[in-house]
């Protein structure tokens, strides 16, 4: 249509040359896609995900070695020292502190064995106080937690806040009561008296 306008001569035939009109932008064909709206969606998603992840004090990621039990309890998590007990290890501050032994029919668990229910989980006696099987104190966990408690007490003192001795245990649903008792006892001995267990809200009662 723009070309037609350029070629039209005035009717009186005086023959002046009309200046070529620059083609409007809308008429130009662009090769690439318009990604502005896509950018908007992506930016909103990014902000939403960043806010969700940073506001979650526990940020639990489930896998074959860590599946959380369900519960109908409705208390929200708060800032605390998270202690994760998976089928493979006890983890504090993203570091494996103690190895968890797994056996299936007397054999050490391997690969897909961890997916099966009914395995036996235990903490090796070498990790316990005096190397005694009967002891409830897990030495490496106790040492690590004492360091964290000391550090958090100093931080709280510097900031002029009160130190809250809260620990949250993120525990796989197959972990036996014996390991839970040992972890609870060790946490208590390290000076964290307020204990919480992480659960997923919902499901059956």
């Amino acid at each position: 249509m723009a070309d037609e306008i350029q070629q039209t001569e005035p009717e009186n035939g005086e023959g002046f040359e009309k200046k070529k009109r620059k083609p409007s932008r809308s008429n130009e064909l662009k090769g690439g896609l318009n990604i502005n709206s896509m950018m908007d969606i992506m930016t909103i998603m990014l902000v939403f995900l960043l806010v969700s992840i940073t506001s979650d004090p526990l940020s639990i990621k489930q896998d074959d070695y860590l599946k959380i039990a369900n519960s109908t309890v409705d208390h929200k998590p708060e800032d605390s020292v998270p202690i994760t007990v998976t089928k493979q290890a006890i983890i504090v501050d993203h570091k494996n502190v103690v190895k968890v032994d797994c056996s299936k029919s007397g054999q050490i668990c391997q690969g897909d064995d961890y997916k099966d229910p009914g395995n036996t989980y235990s903490i090796g006696k070498s990790f316990k106080e005096d190397g005694s099987e009967a002891s409830f104190m897990i030495e490496p966990l106790h040492k690590r937690l004492e360091e964290i408690v000391k550090q958090q007490k100093e931080e709280a003192k510097d900031l002029g806040r009160e130190f809250k001795p809260v620990a949250t245990i993120i525990c796989d649903h197959e972990i036996p009561y014996r390991i839970i008792s040992e972890v609870v006892y060790t946490i208590g001995m390290a000076g964290l008296s307020d204990l919480r267990f992480a659960v997923f809200k919902g499901g059956k009662r």
Binding site: M42, L49, I53, S71, R196, K201
Partner: peptide
């Protein structure tokens, strides 16, 4: 395009709650 799948992978779609116990 790289960041969003990474964050989605790290995101937990379940509501975490806590059960208080005492030793």
């Amino acid at each position: 395009v790289i960041l969003i799948p990474v964050l989605l992978f790290a995101f937990s779609f379940f509501e975490v709650r806590v059960q208080a116990v005492s030793s």
